[in-house]
């Protein structure tokens, strides 16, 4: 229709290139990175024959190769829904407590490419944490926030982590999380959860809090929900199953609740209600 002078803009590993219309993904690979063995178009693995359209995003990956810093950001998020990473890489979130909930929330959001995480916890890694918390045997004895920061940087060096090894109190919460757009509550004790929410909400009433309550035991994962329980408060959990004698905390269900929380944080950053389909 437009002769031989019709071109399209394609982003390849997050850099812009111009190709003739109807270029196939394989031809892009031949020009930019012939040794790539993985081809991803708009967040999904594609064949070499896939025809590209203007504004498509192509990621070319050579398995086993550690990319340079410029490419790494794009490659880490190659399987994201396009646009998500751009929206979250400028975001700052807070995580209060990095035990079973907080460590899993942090890892999920580091993989998502959140720009800046403020993590705070007074505790150190103990053997009894390893049944559900995202730490390793060689981290036993380290402050949890420093151990977790090391892990997060190993996953995604582009995430900035502010690690605060201290006990959060009404006197320091507003200062520590002053830049957090969204706060994830990830404490163990119910009274501490309440203290954190009251303190943060009093100082920053317009900023959402995502809290966890009720994830002990091995009851059905399907009873863990994300609910809006107040104007700016979203609760993830079954709401009732406390950690108690006879009802322990274990990786599967704690992980379910933590990932509800991480998804709620992500939805809030993208402008969606965590609990409904609403924007």
């Amino acid at each position: 229709m437009c002769g031989s002078w019709c071109f399209m803009q394609i982003k390849v590993n997050e850099r812009s290139y111009t190709f003739e219309e109807n270029t196939a993904a394989g031809a892009v690979r031949a020009r930019i990175k012939p040794n790539a063995d993985l081809l991803i178009v708009n967040g999904f693995p594609a064949s070499a024959e896939t025809l590209l359209n203007n504004d498509d995003r192509v990621i070319l990956i050579r398995r086993g190769e550690v990319p340079d810093a410029d490419e790494l950001d794009a490659l880490l998020t190659a399987r994201h829904t396009p646009g998500v990473h751009e929206s979250v890489k400028g975001s700052t979130i807070g995580i209060a407590g990095v035990g079973g909930l907080g460590s899993a929330i942090a890892i999920a959001l580091a993989r998502t490419g959140i720009g800046h995480m403020i993590i705070a916890d007074f505790d150190i890694v103990e053997p009894s944490n390893l049944n559900r918390q995202q730490f390793f045997i060689d981290q036993i004895g380290l402050p949890k926030v420093y151990a977790l920061r090391d892990t997060l940087v190993r996953i995604n060096p582009n995430v900035r982590v502010t690690a605060c090894h201290l006990r959060l109190t009404p006197a320091n919460i507003a200062e520590i999380f002053g830049h957090a757009q969204v706060l994830a509550e990830a404490f163990d004790q119910a009274q501490q959860k309440v203290m954190l929410i009251e303190t943060f909400a009093a100082r920053f009433p317009d900023r959402p809090i995502v809290t966890g309550s009720g994830m002990a035991g091995y009851g059905p994962a399907n009873t863990v929900l994300t609910q809006q329980v107040a104007n700016n408060l979203y609760l993830c959990g079954d709401g009732c199953t406390a950690a108690a004698p006879g009802t322990g905390l274990m990786a599967p269900r704690v992980g379910v609740a933590a990932h509800h929380q991480a998804n709620a944080v992500l939805r809030l950053l993208l402008g969606y209600n965590p609990a409904t389909e609403e924007k």
């Binding site: 407590g97 035990g99 079973g100 909930l101 907080g102 990830a186 404490f187 163990d188 004790q189 119910a190 959860k193 309440v194 009251e198 303190t199 009093a202 809290t211 966890g212 309550s213 009720g214 994830m215 002990a216 329980v229 107040a230 408060l233 609760l235 959990g237 709401g239 009732c240 199953t241 406390a242 950690a243 108690a244 905390l249 704690v254």
Partner: peptide, 25 residues
Amino acid sequence: PRQRLAETVLNRGDTLEVIHFVGGG
């Protein structure tokens, strides 16, 4: 905040949400 619970009086038509928390995390 809990220190203001005693001084805050309820009026007709108010909305009140009480969210109970349990331990674990």
